[in-house]
């Protein structure tokens, strides 16, 4: 089946004119916050939009939401927080360095990277600093407990910010970009400069997992709600790795979902079903059901409008997306 013949949900989209390259988006209950390359955050709700200057004269490099607030890191060296009500303020500020990595934990803590320095601030505002040897790239909090994974050159550092103990190093040669924990915290997986993923089994044995064969870098990773599958971008299909066994995906072939002649740029698993939203560099979006690989067309290929951000709302009834040319939209499932 190809995108052209897939049953279509294109009529269920409410378009949003975000106005600039959408670098990140997040849901704040029923409002979508789009972080933009021109420094703005556009809030969209029920067909209305409101623009907030979160990073004046700068650009949003990274953005994350915990459902209540939208955190953005900018090339102005600031972490800003924007609410659904349009309020915005500076949460943290560094001198000179770009903020292009952020992590949010469920309990209100956040962390950001500024060059080689990683700053973590817990829910009570206590700030801790860790300097790593090379620029900190991806950051991710463990699903439980106040523990941060930091991706960098030659591996990942696992850090308990509020514990004096020396951070733990997970080593693997090469440049690690994004990092993610499996929902059960058994696995830590990174994407790498070398068009591959690398994973570590934290329990029981610190075993390595190498997932290679991508034609380009993976910059989007998404776990299924139960942690049994990890969907990834970087190929001309979403590559979905099986993580249900305690060994992880080693020795098993991944699923390839939504094979099209365009690279997958973003993936987002539905929050409570085996349905994967797949966004492509050519602007197309498909919904794919894992059980039978059936496809639904959300957005047809659109010239110079590659998908750069995508996220489901908490209930899984809406999917928001943003594109490189400033177009965006919100899909309502029928």
């Amino acid at each position: 089946m190809t995108a052209g013949t897939a049953p279509s949900l294109t009529q269920n989209i409410v378009p949003v004119a975000a106005g600039a390259h959408v670098t990140a988006l997040g849901w704040l209950k029923d409002t979508v916050a789009f972080g933009l390359g021109d420094g703005g955050v556009v809030l969209a709700r029920e067909g209305e939009t409101h623009r907030v200057e979160a990073h004046p004269d700068a650009g949003v490099l990274v953005g994350l939401s915990d459902g209540e607030r939208f955190l953005t890191g900018g090339d102005d060296g600031r972490v800003a927080v924007t609410g659904a009500d349009g309020s915005t303020k500076t949460l943290a500020e560094t001198k000179g360095a770009w903020i292009d990595s952020l992590a949010l934990s469920g309990n209100g803590a956040f962390a950001y990277g500024a060059g080689k320095r990683v700053v973590a601030r817990d829910d009570r505002g206590r700030e801790k600093i860790l300097d790593v040897l090379t620029t900190a790239r991806g950051l991710a909090f463990a699903p439980k407990g106040y523990r941060l994974a930091i991706a960098h050159y030659n591996g990942v550092t696992l850090w308990f910010p509020n514990v004096e103990a020396k951070p733990e190093g997970l080593k693997w040669k090469g440049s690690h970009l994004d990092v993610t924990w499996s929902p059960d915290a058994r696995f830590v997986v990174t994407s790498m400069q070398e068009n591959a993923l690398h994973g570590w089994r934290l329990v029981p044995d610190k075993g390595h997992m190498r997932m290679s064969g991508y034609p380009s870098k993976t910059r989007s990773l998404s776990w299924s709600h139960d942690g049994k599958w990890l969907a990834t971008s970087g190929a001309e299909a979403a590559i979905v790795w099986p993580f249900e066994s305690k060994e992880g995906p080693m020795g098993k072939a991944p699923r390839e979902c939504g094979v099209r002649p365009a690279k997958v740029s973003r993936v987002a698993f539905h929050p409570n079903a085996y349905v994967l939203a797949v966004g492509y560099e050519d602007g197309c979006i498909l919904l794919i059901r894992l059980a039978d690989a059936s496809e639904l067309l959300v957005r047809p290929a659109t010239k110079e409008s590659g998908i750069t951000a995508m996220a489901w709302d908490k209930a899984g009834r809406h999917l928001a997306f943003g594109c490189e040319d400033g177009r965006a939209g919100i899909l309502a499932l029928p």
Partner: peptide, 9 residues
Amino acid sequence: DEEVFEMNN
């Protein structure tokens, strides 16, 4: 920062 990385190839 002029971080020179070896490609792992």
